[in-house]
């Protein structure tokens, strides 16, 4: 059975090269292609691909934000990031965001084809990262277990994208108190932004 793929890269030549390579293999059908993050999200939601092959640096919306939004709405999406960046921090950030694999653009065609098949089969591909000391994954603990009842309320409101001001209004508390709760939650969950909190909530299945 053919693996359905969507390709996102702002370089047209890169996309064409990938399409040719995938068609030559015969196991893949490219069901969509685009050059920015916003179009990618729409394509994924309408076309339901098996694997998304995407770049990080794209116009309109960065790859990292796009991954967040895709997984928030379609958590089963299997994403393989194809990037020119060889820094370990990129790979870690993409793994933590919920991508299933990360390869450099210089990767040979054979290795890339193999990697896509493995990701489609549910495997994770992060070459070189396994050997490095991984930080404790936030997904392994239930975020709610460390929070007080009030902090849980604030947690869900932050995860739903509310500002501290709005949260203060909703829970009838002062802005300062809301900020304090928020800061305590961030500390307890070891996150540094609402984006990270939402990602963590998504991974723990708390966004439904």
């Amino acid at each position: 059975m053919s693996i359905k793929i969507i390709i996102a890269d702002d370089h047209v030549i890169m996309r064409q090269g990938l399409i040719q390579m995938l068609q030559a293999d015969g196991h893949f059908t490219v069901i969509g292609e685009c050059g920015d993050g916003v179009s990618l999200i729409n394509l994924v939601l309408t076309e339901s691909p098996d694997v998304v092959l995407m770049d990080i640096s794209m116009p309109e919306m960065s790859g990292l934000v796009a991954i967040d939004k895709i997984l928030a709405q379609r958590p089963m999406t299997r994403i393989l990031v194809l990037s020119m960046h060889n820094e370990r921090e990129y790979m870690e950030a993409m793994r933590d965001a919920g991508a299933k694999g990360y390869l450099q653009k210089e990767t040979s065609a054979d290795a890339l084809v193999q990697a896509i098949k493995q990701v489609a089969a549910g495997k994770q591909i992060f070459p070189g990262l396994e050997s490095l000391t991984a930080e404790t994954s936030p997904a392994t603990i239930s975020p709610l277990s460390v929070l007080t009842r009030r902090e849980r309320e604030v947690f869900f409101l932050v995860a739903a994208g509310n500002t501290s001001k709005r949260i203060a209004e909703l829970l009838t508390m002062s802005l300062k108190t809301a900020e304090n709760h928020r800061s305590n939650i961030y500390k307890k969950l070891n996150v540094s932004s609402s984006a990270e909190l939402i990602r963590l909530a998504g991974k723990a299945g708390l966004l439904e």
């Binding site: 790859g63 820094e87 950030a93």
Partner: peptide, 19 residues
Amino acid sequence: PTILDDLGLKPALKWLCRS
């Protein structure tokens, strides 16, 4: 540092210290 735009301040500083 494109990493600052791509990933934000925390990964960018970690990268800076490491590299």
